[in-house]
Amino acid sequence: MSDKLEFSNNLFTIKDLYLPGMVSIRTHLFDKKFQKIIKDILKINVPNKLEFTFNKNLYLAWMSPNELLLFSKNLNEILKLITIIEDTLKGIESLVLDVSSSRTVFSIKGSLWRELLAKGTPINLCPNKFTSKSFRRTRLGQVSTAFWMVKTDQVYIVCGRSFKEFFFKWLCNAANEKSIIKFF
């Protein structure tokens, strides 16, 4: 596997969360039976559209009306959960897949993260629009991504594994201390 990527300056620390765990759960999210199963196993509610829910290190995010992404920094936690979820969902039309190797997750720490992301995405990142509950799939520059706030001064960003190094360079460039606007 390629090297662990890290960058920091006075404003931002950008880190590749090395080998995180991710599961894609495809089913009809509005199904009450499904919602109960998720609540029972994960102790988390199925999130509303464009949002995520969480329990400690476990995040559950809305990808589309029939897809959730379950994420943990801890790959082993995820690997254990996959079989449980898959087995419990047997009777429900669904597809549960380990996608831990498909994607990578970067953490960006720094209170000005909105400034950094606004260099690449056309979505509205104003605090009243992109809130602590928000999970958005959009582009950053030319790369397809999804991101959410884990703390007021920290975001996690998911991108395809093969784009990892390119995207890391993009992030570092956008983190340029000399190009901060203080718009938000």
């Binding site: 559209k49 464009l50 589309s64 056309p122 979505i123």
Partner: peptide, 11 residues
């Protein structure tokens, strides 16, 4: 209409 949110042409 699925996300019920404004999307930019480039998305």
């Amino acid at each position: 209409p699925i996300c019920e949110i404004e999307t930019d042409e480039t998305e």
